[in-house]
Amino acid sequence: MSRADRARSLSLRQLLGALGIGVAAVALVWTGPLWTVLAALALGTVYAAGTAPLAVAFGQVALVAVGPASPAAAVTVEVGLFLSLLAAALSSPTPTAAAAVTVAVPLFAGLTWLALSSWQMGPMAVALGLVCGFATVAYLLHRYLLVSIGIVSRDQPQSATTYE
């Protein structure tokens, strides 16, 4: 990737992130009372000063607090927040990052929504499933990386304990 390509990628990432946060902020203001303007400003500040995940969390809390009048407004906010997460993934040198985020985020979010609303699972079970599923997949990916780069062999598992 040349310097020009990097600059293009950077601007695309910034543009997409700003667009996502802007869409989410406008949707919040449009659907809520006057104080949501402050929430929208805070959302932009958190995104600019912090990270995309923090902004997503803040925007989600604001959305719950506002209680959108229509599902369309809620979906608009969610799409905006998702775009900011997608923009963060564009910083990766491989284009598969954006594809992975496009698949993983809706998949996890959709399964959780289905579990709570359609499958009538309890919040406790969903939370446990979420945490355990995340931990299991993360650990498997970690072990796969260790085997891939030859730090541990397939036949000889090695302790990966961190001693403090």
Partner: peptide, 9 residues
Amino acid sequence: AGLLGWVLA
């Protein structure tokens, strides 16, 4: 769930 999915991705 979306954030955890993003981390895993």
